[in-house]
Every structure is written in C-alpha cells, then in structure tokens.
Write a protein that binds this DNA or RNA. Sequence first.
DNA 1: TTGAAAGCGTTACCAG
DNA 2: CTGGTAACGCTTTCAA
Lengths: 354, 354
Amino acid sequence: MARHITQKDIAKKLGVSRVTVSKALSEDADISTEMKRKVRAAAAEAGYIIHHGARSLQMRRTNTIGVVIPDISNSFFSRAIRGIIDKATARGYHVILTVSDENAETERENIHTLLSYRVDGLLVALSKDPDDWTIFDQARKMDVPLVFFDRVPDSSEFSTVAVDNRKAAQKLVEFVISSGYDKIGHLAGSQTLAIGRNRMAGYLAALKKHGIPRRNDWIISGGFDRSSGYEGFLRLLQARDRPDVIFAANDRIAQGAYKAIKEVKLAIPDGIGVVAFGHSEFAELLQPKLTIIDCPPVALGQQAVEILFSEIANPATKRRHRSLLKTTLEVGESLLVRKGQFAEAEVMRLSSNE
Amino acid sequence: MARHITQKDIAKKLGVSRVTVSKALSEDADISTEMKRKVRAAAAEAGYIIHHGARSLQMRRTNTIGVVIPDISNSFFSRAIRGIIDKATARGYHVILTVSDENAETERENIHTLLSYRVDGLLVALSKDPDDWTIFDQARKMDVPLVFFDRVPDSSEFSTVAVDNRKAAQKLVEFVISSGYDKIGHLAGSQTLAIGRNRMAGYLAALKKHGIPRRNDWIISGGFDRSSGYEGFLRLLQARDRPDVIFAANDRIAQGAYKAIKEVKLAIPDGIGVVAFGHSEFAELLQPKLTIIDCPPVALGQQAVEILFSEIANPATKRRHRSLLKTTLEVGESLLVRKGQFAEAEVMRLSSNE
DNA sequence: TTGAAAGCGTTACCAG
DNA sequence: CTGGTAACGCTTTCAA
C-alpha cells in the first residue's frame, strides 16, 4: 500500500486545518455550508476515502458486526446471512462473516479474530455445544454483545434466537402419528448440539404421549449433512424390521436419506415417507417433496440482528441485571408444518419396491 | 464498548514499558525468553486481545482481503467463498465478505467500504459489466490489487480468473449436435455480462460451424436465476415450433426450465433435454440430472486468491508494466463435460406428453 | 535487553 | 465558524 490520501492532504490543499476537514466531512453543524462544499469537492477530486480503522480507533466503535456460522454451503445459513446483512446494512453496519467449518477450534479462532477487530457485536451459530467457554467469557468481559442464533446452547448468559425445536419436533411427529403411523424412525443429527438433542426429545415425547415404545435401533445420530442422512438410512435398514416413516433432524439429512432410499429401491411415497425440519426453499428442490417444519432462515437472521442491535444500543454496563432474551420461534407462529405437493395425496408407507 | 485491556495495562502491571510488551508479544528477537514468557502469561491472564485496527494503522497493512459476490444463496458462489477462505486463512489472511445482491450500485458501495477498511486486496465477481469504472480506478489508484473472478469484464486493467465460456459453450453445444440434434434453444442469461455474451457466442459459433441456422425466437435472455429459467422456457414455448434441446447458460436457469417443463407436462428425458454450465454438486441435486460443463467453484476461488496474493506480494509500484493474468480454465483442463446418470442412456427428445 | 519518542489517520475537547 | 492539542492502541526507530 502506497500512502493514501488523508484529511491532512485535503486540508493542506485547501489551506485549512485538518479539523475543519474532519468536521466538514462528517457534516458537523458548526462548519459553514460553503466550507463543506469546498471540502467535499476537494475530497472527491482527490479520491479521498476515509480510513475506517483510524476512525474506529478514535470513535471506539467500528460499526461492524461479526458473524460466525458453521457452514456457508448450507443454504439455511446462507439465507440467514442474507437476512443479517440486509438488516445490518439498513442500520449502517457492516458485516464480517466467518465460517467455522463445523469445527469448535476454528470457531474459537474466528471469534477471537472478530474480537480483535473490535466488532460492535457478535452473532454466532454453534458448531457444537461449547465445552470451553473462555472465548465467550472474553466477549462478555469486553462487553461485546453476543447473540446465538439457530444453533444455540442449552443455557448461557447470552441471548438466543432459535426455533423451539422440542415443541416443533413433537408437533411434527404427532402429525405423523395422527396420520396413522406408529413405526417412526429418527435420523437424529448431532447430539453434541442442543438443537439435535431437543429435536430428539420432541420425537421421544411424541412417541411417549401416544404410548408408542421407543426403538433404539430406529434412532441414528450423526451429523447434520447429506452424507449422514445417507449413511444413517443404510444403518437403519439393518434393523430387523423397517420403520414406515423417517423423521430427519433436518432437510439435508432427509436429502441423504432419499438418496439411499432410491438406491435400495424402496418405493418413495410422494408424501410422508420422510419428514424433517427444514426451510421451504430447500425442501422445494427435493424430490419427492418433504413434509417439513418450516424454519425461515431469513427471518431468524433478521430477528437475531435486531436483538443484537438492542443490546449494542443498551450496553451491559447500564443494565446490572442483564436481561437476556431467549427468543424461540414457535410452531403456529413463524413456523408452519408445510406439506409438499402431496398435501392432498394419500399417505403412503415406506415399503419395498421389489 | 468499555475500555479494553491494552498493552499499556500489561506493561504497567509488569512494571516494564509498553514497547517491551509489544515486542514480546510479536516474538521480537531482542526480548529475553523469560520476559516473553512473563508478558504472554500476563496477557493471557488479563484477557488481552490485540487491537487489530490500531495495529493495522501502524503497519499499513490489514492482513485482510475483501470479497464482493452478487449473491450468497447461489451455491456456486458459496462454494467459491469456501475456496477463498481456505486459501486465505492458510496464508494468515482474513476475509471480509460482502454481497452486492446483483446490484451495481450496491457493488460500488461494497467496494468503497472495503477500500475504507483498507483491505490488502479485492476479489470481485461482477453483478453486471461496469458502465462506471471510477470505483475500480480508485482501487487502482490506491494500489489495492483487485482480481475479478467468474463474472469478469471483457477487458480491463485487472487480472481475471474465469472459465473460457465461449470455448466451453461451443464444446457443449457441439456435443449436443454430434448427438444428432439441430433444434437447440438457448436460455441465455444476462447479456449485460460478458459471461452471458460469451456463452451465447459459443452457442452461436457451434451452430454456425455446423451450418445450423440461428433461430432468434429460440434464444431468450434474462437473468441467471431459477425464475429466469422458468419464465424463459415458457416464452420459448410460444415459438411456432419447439427446440428439442435447451442449452441453459447456467444450472439455476436449467432448474427453472425443468420446473416449467414439468408443469406443461412435457416428457422429461432423463438425459439431454437440457444442458448447461454448472457445478457438479448442484447438478447432482437436479432431477433429471443435467449434462453440464463442470465449473468447479472452489478451485476457481482458490486460483483467484492465489493470483491476488501474488499481486499483493508484488506491488504495482514495482512493476511499471503491470503484468495482468487473464486466467481461463478451459474445457479438458479443469473442466469436463459431465453427463448425469443418463450417460449411457439413449438420448431422447423433448416432446409433448399428452 | 530495554525504553523514549514519534507517528499511523482520525475525532473530541476547548479556545479563539 | 475555525483551529490547536491531545488521544485512541499500536509499532518502529534509535538511543541507552
């Protein structure tokens, strides 16, 4: 980097002081309109671009928020990012996005980096339940607001925005039961995350409520990605008999399950064979279409930023007893049980095709 | 933000000067091992995190690169980002990601923002061909290296990394022709981007080469998204007769076309009905599977960073005659014509089902 | 091996 | 309305 144009350069050229330039550029009330015009013109002509870092150093505020997500190729998160960026931009904030790649250590490093950038706030979707809270304590200590979204910890000193997974899962599974099924398997995703445990808890609660015994060989945990769904389903097939319906912890798992289902040539019912948590756009891509609990990523992201901004505006130093928001989107509120094209179709069983 | 721990604080606590702390923390050669240990311990204990902004101000280098993409929910770009982040992280750089939302003005603002952050380099995928080059000239003037990737301008003073779209398109269309078709339509995407024009040029070249007359009513331009493909196909149907094969400018357009094809109840050949540019992972999701030119997003992103780093390491001030790299991935190199499941299947015609 | 002084580009606080 | 001075947190240079 060569030396860039600074306010000093403009000041010199105009024969005024740098302070005047600074004030003029920030539309300070006590600079004459004429002066402002001149300064702006000179700045534009010289190709002056403010040094954000220097400014932040002085302002003690970066107008930047940091985001940590586990996986950018997960369309749920890329949609959520969209909501976050939109809302943040609208409030004059910039967003620095980092990706933990489902790795707790990388997540730690990312948060550290963002803290070193002195972001004004943090938005985090966890890769797994933290077993080491020091980096989060650090954020707390530095009084940098942090809001967990989607993948939130069971309990913490931070605000969270997430789906009420337990309740929603129970609802979805009860929907399946009320459709006449009692042989329901579960591809459970990662149990090292509350989101996974809660979805399983909802599943179990639904079974229990309807007196359906739990079958451990029908419950497979793993990751939240496609391959976990694929492998999970194949493992499920090793049970002595097969469930009729699969409840997948998310849409990508469902996608993997579909793939396996096709390969082993099971009839794919165009309806309730697999049900899952998911977001509607992704579910639309799948064949056959999924029955899902629709978790809207954009809305979730927006809500998270909203809460973050309120915490930024109202520093913890002011609120002795920090008021945490445990926001959960609930079924019937922002969440819907969405049925695919098959909505009217007769519900079919997962059965062998051969 | 309350006042954070600074090097000064650590210095005071240890009864040494701030310089000693700074040097110790950066592993400077002329600090005793013992002192370094003490400083590090004190820093860790106090929860010291370096102020990246202050450091950069002095260092005149941020160790950060800025990226501008048109759309984060486009899986091509989210995969490319992955490649970028991986390579950048490996070299100790951070990445600030911004999204232009396919909007030239937002793109301009994003670049401006990144310039104000004093990023060490820029990676840009265009939303459209720039009609105003001032922001790019600005980057040039500030001597901030900039590399265009994927969506590159026809010609500029900047390095580019992209697929050789013209050649690849011609190759793909010739593949279709050699399979016995001569009624080939084109959903062309945006013609305000070189990438769109070049793909069309390749299409036209292939037709011409084989003496197939061009049918303007079989060429529909629009955007690069799903809905453009959907609407484009419906418009195509209004031609007096239908083409047998559609060449879509990218995979998302193809996806939209499939949707329309299904809706109007045309037989969907599990093969060559639609061919497109795309990346293999996305194409795998589609039903029926696409025949594509496989553009690998991760590799493309990595290559772009690589070039950017070489320009960062070798500032323009040193090279009077800037050596631009116009890197193009070519078919047969990193690119393959990938056929879906139908590879062995008989090629079928797009015909009415009713 | 350590430290004092200067400066990076900006804004806040007072004087004039 | 304008400007001087100090300060933000850090590194670099040079002297001790």
